[in-house]
Amino acid sequence: MAKHSGNVEMNDAVFVYSEDQLGYKFSDSHPFNQKRLVLTVDLLKEMNALSDDRIIPVRTATDEELLLAHDERYINIVKKAGLGEVTPEVGENYGIGTEDTPMFDHMHEAAARLVGGTLTAVDEVMQGRALHALNLGGGLHHGFRGKASGFCIYNDSTVAIKYMQQKYGARVLYMDTDAHHGDGVQWSFYDDPSVCTVSIHETGRYLFPGTGSITERGSDKGYGTSFNLPIDAFTEDDSFLETYRTAFREIASFFKPDVILTQNGADAHYLDPLTHLYGTMDIYREIPKVAHEIAHEFCGGKWIAVGGGGYDIWRVVPRAWSLLWMEMSGQPLPFGKLPQSWLDRWQPDSPVPLIPTWEDPQDLYKPIPRKPEIEEKNQQMLEKALYMIRNA
């Protein structure tokens, strides 16, 4: 579990979590529901896969740290909004008070804690106390410099990358497998050659935020360090994973990062209510496995992971994120039945029948008649992306 490096005891992986991360809450009916953190932590503990000595408490990001990625005026508006001092008309100019990102009490403090969790994970890895660190409360990849977007008030990954650049002089590879394009992070580093952003996502033809074309490749000195892999709606596991595995390895080999930061949205699953992809739990076994291998192969194991989207909080997110932690911490991935105690505890609260196994049911969805066409389109897109990588 732990290794010694000089006089420093190093963990293979640490889990950054505090219950105060649950304060990031828009409303009881909002699709972004942090109860998924409670469900995941409880499932891991029932599996004896997460011990208290692996949990690192969250800290709150300072204003100075938030200023690495956000305007001072915007931060002040968020603070005032959390105190009820901003009108809806003013808030909308900053992306808050909208249907996606409503205002709520003490929203600045809640959002700053999610950022602080990711910075805690960064310091654990970059200061050599852990090879890998996970903050499932992070991954809010749509936030912009002066505006909230898509449930994201502050962009923890952008702050974390700027922090790694400033404090550690790191060359960062950001890999985003959320079904939605990682737009806020991409645009923050679009002209920066020391950061490589990669996003594999459902094409924006029918899905927020509508960006993430394969032609978005960076600008000025950063041209050739932004990569987008937009896959077709209804894409299934095999096509998703071929795109992900092939591109991730090629890009890591090309970019040669000092550290990898992965965003692990769990919304590419068939059951997710906000997207149109046809993934199963099989992709959530493979996504972290590939990241784990590439981190060890290209940057000495330095791997920081955050959460992200995932809106079926009962049947999908706890299983997917548990598999991420178990891979990250070097534990055998489970098969078969989930702990009965966990199922019994949470089924009364769940509005849908829980899936009782780590695997999805064989008849999760009916066969897709357009499968060959979808796979061919994704393959053509991947070949274009590989050509761009090899000629960057």
Rank of each mutant, 00 (worst) to 15 (best):
M10I: 03
F15I: 06
V16G: 04
Y17T: 01
Y17E: 02
Q21M: 15
L22T: 04
P31R: 11
N33M: 05
L43N: 01
A49F: 00
L50Y: 01
L50H: 00
D52W: 02
D52E: 15
P57Q: 03
V58G: 01
T62F: 04
D63T: 14
L66M: 08
E72Q: 12
N76I: 00
I77P: 03
A81T: 07
V86T: 05
P88Q: 11
V90C: 05
V90P: 00
G91W: 12
Y94C: 06
G95N: 10
G97F: 14
D100A: 15
P102M: 12
M103V: 14
E109V: 04
A111Q: 12
R113D: 02
R113A: 15
L114T: 12
D123G: 01
E124H: 00
E124I: 00
Q127H: 06
Q127Y: 01
A130Y: 01
L131I: 02
H132R: 15
L134P: 00
N135K: 02
G138S: 08
G139S: 06
G139D: 05
H141E: 07
H141N: 07
H141M: 07
G143Y: 03
F144N: 13
K147N: 14
A148Q: 07
S149G: 13
I153M: 09
S157T: 13
Q165R: 07
K167C: 06
A170V: 01
R171L: 04
V172I: 14
V172D: 02
L173A: 13
D176M: 08
D183Q: 15
V195P: 11
V195G: 11
C196K: 04
T197D: 06
V198H: 06
I200T: 05
I200G: 04
H201W: 07
E202R: 14
T203S: 15
G204A: 13
G204N: 10
T211R: 14
T211P: 04
G212S: 08
I214F: 11
E216A: 14
D220E: 13
Y223E: 15
Y223N: 08
N228G: 08
L229M: 15
I231F: 10
A233R: 13
D237P: 09
R245T: 09
I251W: 06
S253D: 13
P257I: 09
P257N: 08
P257A: 10
I260L: 14
L261M: 13
N264R: 02
Y270R: 06
Y270F: 15
T275P: 05
T275F: 08
H276G: 01
Y278R: 14
G279Q: 07
G279K: 04
M281T: 12
I287L: 15
K289Y: 11
V290D: 00
H296K: 12
A305T: 12
G308Q: 10
G308H: 08
G309W: 09
D312N: 15
D312A: 12
V316G: 08
V316A: 05
R319P: 06
S322T: 02
S322M: 01
L324Q: 02
S329P: 06
L333Y: 11
L338A: 08
Q340M: 11
L343T: 11
Q347T: 15
P348A: 11
P348I: 09
S350M: 13
E359N: 02
D363S: 10
Y365W: 04
I368S: 03
K371H: 10
P372F: 07
E373V: 11
E375Y: 04
K377D: 07
N378H: 04
Q379L: 14
R390L: 03
N391F: 12
